[in-house]
């Protein structure tokens, strides 16, 4: 890789870490004009930046709103690439269907996870909040996701999470199911037959990437 290219990818990486959505998009657009492949921009600049964000968050140096702003900047860059990626038949690392379970209307955490997953190179289908099991089922049939992610904030909606997992398993959905949210823990995830649990958004991205075989450690 030429030094020029390295410097330009550094700039994109730096723009994401500086939470500069407009600048990120502009730098990505210019980079595509240089003829750099979308995959390389995505992998070596945007996803690399989000990996750094995840590590900084895990070590307590980055706070949630800062992580969110970085994810937004990353998404702005991704939006520039999206039509080009489609045209080039490039495939996302995997597809994840996410949603907040039935009777639960909370979406802050779920939205953050969705945005971070997109930043991690995954295609995300967000079903929104108060999603009954049959809508998860319909989405599973329509999108053939590698992973389905269920979110809940309320203790009282944990039953919906259990029921959704039961129904998905009952009809033979054989992809991975991951769960998260304030009242959820590893033991609960195991008890209801989910494949995994993550305590925070970067953890969810890491887990989903492991599930789709795009793990980077």
């Amino acid at each position: 890789m030429s030094e020029d290219l390295e410097a330009r990818l550094d700039a994109i990486y730096g723009a994401v870490l500086a939470y500069e959505a407009g600048n990120t998009a502009e730098l990505v657009r210019r980079e595509t004009e240089h003829g750099t492949s979308c995959q390389q921009i995505l992998s070596d600049a945007l996803i690399a930046a989000m990996d750094e964000v995840g590590d900084q968050f895990a070590s307590g140096r980055l706070f949630v709103p800062e992580m969110l702003m970085a994810a937004k900047a990353m998404k702005a860059g991704l939006e520039v690439l999206r039509p080009l990626l489609s045209a080039s038949d490039a495939k996302p690392a995997g597809t994840v269907v996410i949603g907040t379970v039935h009777k639960d209307l909370h979406d802050i955490g779920k939205n953050l996870v969705g945005m971070m997953m997109e930043g991690g190179g995954l295609k995300v289908v967000d079903l929104g909040v108060d999603v009954p099991p049959d809508r998860f089922l319909a989405a599973a049939r329509e999108h053939h996701p590698d992973v389905i992610g269920l979110s809940a904030l309320l203790t009282t909606t944990l039953p919906s999470m259990r029921k959704t997992v039961e129904i998905l398993r009952g009809v033979g959905y054989n992809g991975r199911i991951m769960v998260g949210g304030a009242p959820v823990n590893q033991a609960f995830a195991q008890a209801i037959g989910a494949d995994g649990f993550a305590a925070d958004a970067p953890g969810a991205v890491k887990l989903a990437r492991q599930f789709v075989g795009a793990a980077d450690g």
């Binding site: 706070f63 949630v64 953050l112 925070d200």
Partner: peptide, 9 residues
């Protein structure tokens, strides 16, 4: 309040 380090309430 949201713990800005972890996102927990």
């Amino acid at each position: 309040c949201l713990d800005m380090r972890s996102g927990r309430s």
